[in-house]
Amino acid sequence: MVVAVVASLLLGEVALRPLEGRLSADVRHILDAPAQVRALGDAPAPRVLFVGNSMLRCALAPDVAARLAVARGQPCAAATVFMDGSDVLEWRWALERLLREGQARPDAVVLGFTPGQLGDDNPVRPQRLARHVRLGDVAALATEESLSVEQTTHLVLARASALVQNADRVRTRCLDAVVPAYRRVKPRLAATAAPTAMRGGDRRLRRLLALLAREGVVALAVAMPTREGYDVSSTARDALGGATILDGRRPPGLEPGEGHFDDDVHLSPDGAAVFTDWLARELAARLDRR
């Protein structure tokens, strides 16, 4: 019987690996990221890599490279790495992996952020990090983030098993299929979870910026637009000291009342066109200056 259970798990593991890209566009994108970044290696400079979460995914028009080229008046290569629901910790480890394994180095990395995604308060999510962290990195990550035994074990298991790594996506897919209004209720249920202890600080961001500096990559940070708007605090500005900050909270022409937002934080395709053109102009000026 134990054999049957182990065999069924192994079967699931083998079956899921080729299928995991179909679980969500997000996973597909993460799996494709190394190849995208590698493709930058053949392109003429400047090569720009955009890194962020679904806010940046929705805010960048698919032809961002072409718009950037128009703004510069010269060809420009761009690649994107979007990880839905991610924050600075996941961006940092994704970049560690991409810069190490991508066999290509972008000239500039553009981070799309809101202040809540830059600090050290967000919880560590081992399942998510497992996509980017090698087993050899586990000790370093555990030390940096003071991971508990639970988190470290979960990270190792998720690193080793596609089933564990994709469990939340499989769960969401299944519950979406059988539970009415699950997507609408899910945030309300998530809000009932006990709050995690606030650590404060910006060590994660500083490590990310140090990584880019070490690799000789220019760091640019774009404050992303939201319907309500927000303050970019002086703390965030201080933490981003090593990066150029582009204020994209309300670029000219981007209006919440004009159908430019799909929801409170995600731009519609029309909004994305406005935002991308603005960003292309801002980047063109800065990239050429360097």
């Binding site: 519950l175 059988v178 539970v179 009415p180 209004a181 699950y182 609408r184 209720v185 309300r188």
Partner: peptide, 9 residues
């Protein structure tokens, strides 16, 4: 929504 989703869950 909460009741319907909750009962299904």
């Amino acid at each position: 929504d909460l009741a319907a989703a909750g009962l299904a869950m």
